[in-house]
Design a protein around this nucleic acid. Structure first.
Lengths: 109, 109
DNA sequence: CGTGTAAGGAATTCTGACACG
DNA sequence: CGTGTAAGGAATTCTGACACG
């Protein structure tokens, strides 16, 4: 775990203008979805928003749902549930790994 | 081949300011290496340079070589040789695939 | 050769607000 | 609720050039 590369997909390096081009959303819309806690860009040293490719994908999904008449509040609920599920999956994986280690001493590093 | 995603690694979406932060190089240096044909950013609709993660990696290698006293001209020579090798590898792969197709009719799509 | 810098302009991004519905 | 817009400022990026060595 010496590396914290987080891979290209999650590195926040894209400015709002490019995200706008990539998603077809206006900057106003993108900022609003942040206000509604649907995405969480980082800030560059100078204060401008930086997005990852993951964020771009999330925004495309949000755009689809909004088009279907889903409200931002509901979208957030879905995301929370979704994250909950992922957390459970991770937890299960970790537990399984623990068992294997106990039985066979498989390296966890 | 319906997709042209080119994966995240090669998508040119990073502005020169962020590349500067990521590589530790000044914008002046980054633009100069482009002038010397070592990197090839795309231009956004409005004309600003856009780099990929691949470009960032290439720039880190360039930075190392420059530090070792290698001149931009030599670095370019190396890159050309390197690309030549990759082309040959690709060619060999393609030829092999062709043989297999001829013998067993394996789908190439 | 590789890099710094001052120069002036054009485009980007930010925030808070008013508007419509 | 979700989005558009005008507003003013601050930061970004661009190009061509002069400088040093």
């Amino acid at each position: 775990m010496a590396y914290e590369e987080a891979s290209y997909k999650d590195k926040k390096v894209i400015s709002i203008g490019v995200v706008s081009e990539l998603t077809g959303l206006t900057e106003r819309q993108i900022r609003y979805y942040e206000e509604r806690n649907l995405i969480f860009p980082e800030r560059s040293p100078r204060g401008s928003r930086k997005y990852s490719f993951s964020d771009v994908e999330t925004l495309m999904e949000i755009a689809n749902k909004i088009e279907d008449g889903v409200q931002t509040f509901e979208i957030r609920q879905e995301m929370i549930r979704q994250n909950g599920k992922e957390d459970q999956r991770e937890l299960r994986k970790r537990m399984l790994r623990g068992q294997l280690n106990a039985q066979f001493g498989i390296q966890d590093k």
